[in-house]
C-alpha cells in the first residue's frame, strides 16, 4: 500500500465517509482513491472535481479577493451528502485536491473539514526537523 493510499485511508476513518480521492487539478487525473466514487466513474469524478476548482479559481472574483489569497476548500452540499474539495498546494508541478464524499446523516461537516485540512497538510508538508540540502 502506497503512502498516498494511507492518507486516503485516514480520510475514510471519518464518520460518514463514503469515498475519497486525490486529484491532480491541472490534468483531472485521480492519483489515488478509496471507497466509493460519486457517479461510479472515478475518472469522470476526478476530472469533474478539477474542472470545478479550475472554474472557481479562475472565474469567481471571491477566490482571490486579496493578494496571496487562495481557495482552501470548496464545499458542495446535496440533499443526501457533502462533498469537500480541499486544495493541496504542491511545491513541484501545480496543485492537488483531496476530495471527500460524506454521507449526510452520519457526516459532520465541520469536523471533516478540519480533519481533511490536517491530512492534506501531512501529505506535502515536510517535517520541521528534516535536514535541508545536506545530502551525503
Amino acid at each position: 500500500m502506497s503512502d498516498i493510499d494511507d492518507h486516503l485511508a485516514r480520510t475514510m476513518d471519518l464518520p460518514g465517509a463514503v469515498g475519497a480521492s486525490l486529484v491532480d487539478c491541472a490534468t483531472g487525473l485521480a492519483l489515488g482513491s478509496a471507497g466509493a466514487v460519486p457517479g461510479g466513474d472515478g475518472e469522470a469524478a476526478a476530472a469533474g472535481a478539477a474542472e470545478v476548482l479550475y472554474v472557481a479559481s479562475g472565474r469567481a472574483p471571491f477566490a482571490s479577493a486579496r493578494p496571496n489569497d487562495a481557495i482552501e476548500d470548496l464545499i458542495i452540499t446535496t440533499a443526501s451528502g457533502y462533498h469537500l474539495l480541499r486544495t493541496v498546494p504542491v511545491a513541484f508541478g501545480g496543485q492537488l485536491a483531496l476530495c471527500l464524499w460524506l454521507d449526510r446523516p452520519d457526516g459532520n461537516l465541520a469536523m471533516a473539514r478540519r480533519r481533511l485540512a490536517e491530512i492534506a497538510d501531512d501529505l506535502v508538508r515536510p517535517r520541521p526537523d528534516a535536514p535541508v540540502g545536506s545530502a551525503a
Partner: peptide, 12 residues
Amino acid sequence: QGHLMQSELELC
C-alpha cells in the same frame, strides 16, 4: 535522508 516525504516522492 529526510529530504522528501514518501508521499511527496510518490506524487512527483
